[in-house]
């Protein structure tokens, strides 16, 4: 079987298209590269969904933490503490148990115990917790002068937040947030390793890598392939976030643009 045929059979195997059965014998390098790559679809999906949704929630929670009212502040603080303070591994375990009991009482919540919905939800909450802490830190260091200048121009409330505070907060938080994004994508490999079941042998890159490691009894081929995929993915993330960073800082004179993270990395889990 040529490598192109393998690509045709297995490139979308992780989504359930193509050959129904995984290769069982005579494993080739091509099969491993194609199937592990197919699994990367899920890693990208989990990471992207959680990142986009988590961004919005993180902004809200960061504002909550900075709020004067304890009704907003306390729950936000606890949210961040629980999701930053416990291993994702354990969060997955509890989420799965919780979703199981939830769907017993509300049948409409059935999809929650499947990885594409349930695990994405956990990752979303997890990254929201970490990002909220980053945003909160950035919010505290928005220069007073900028806020005062905005007031002098008559900007208050929502317009002041949207046009002055929020962009500056993002600008300050961006390097640390880039790190968070990288680690979120790395954390997606935990989905099928613990907690959520893989249905119909549709799994992420780590699932297929460990499948091959189990079948060939040789961990030295599939895991390095997985590592290479992730190094490539990390480079892509860094490139995208770097482009956003440049656009966030486009108004600054070239010499003042921070070349390096001002904020020391907010690393994860």
């Amino acid at each position: 079987m040529s490598c192109w045929e393998i690509v045709a059979d297995y490139a979308f195997r992780s989504l359930g298209y193509g050959e129904r059965l995984l290769p069982r014998s005579d494993f080739t390098l091509c099969q491993q590269v194609v199937l592990i790559g197919s699994g990367m679809i899920w890693n990208v999906y989990f990471g992207a969904v959680a990142l986009v949704a988590g961004f919005a929630l993180a902004t809200l929670v960061a504002l909550g933490k900075a709020a004067r009212s304890p009704w907003l502040r306390k729950p936000s603080e606890w949210f961040v503490f629980v999701f930053r303070g416990s291993p994702l591994f354990i969060q997955f375990f509890f989420a799965y148990f919780f979703f199981l009991s939830l769907k017993q009482s509300v049948p409409a919540l059935d999809p929650l115990t499947s990885a594409p919905v349930g695990a994405a939800l956990v990752l979303f909450l997890n990254t929201a917790g970490y990002s909220a802490e980053i945003f909160h830190g950035a919010l505290r260091s928005v220069p007073r002068g900028e806020v005062e200048a905005a007031e002098a121009y008559g900007l208050t409330g929502w317009p002041r937040f949207r046009r002055i505070v929020w962009p500056t907060m993002l600008r300050l938080a961006w390097p640390a947030y880039t790190n968070e994004a990288i680690f979120l994508f790395h954390a997606t490999t935990l989905v099928f390793l613990s907690g959520f079941p893989a249905a119909g042998q549709k799994g992420d890159a780590l699932y297929y890598a460990s499948y091959f490691a189990d079948q060939t009894f040789n961990p030295f081929v599939p895991y390095p392939i997985l590592a290479l995929y992730f190094i490539a993915l990390t480079l892509v993330i860094v490139a995208i976030f770097g482009a956003v960073n440049r656009s966030l800082n486009r108004h600054l004179p070239a010499a003042r643009r921070p070349a390096r993270p001002r904020f020391l990395p907010q690393i994860v889990r």
Binding site: L22, P197, A199, G200, Q201
Partner: peptide, 12 residues
């Protein structure tokens, strides 16, 4: 199970 045609659900 994968070969039998049933829907396989794998746990660790």
């Amino acid at each position: 199970v994968a070969e039998s045609g049933a829907a396989l659900l794998e746990f660790a």
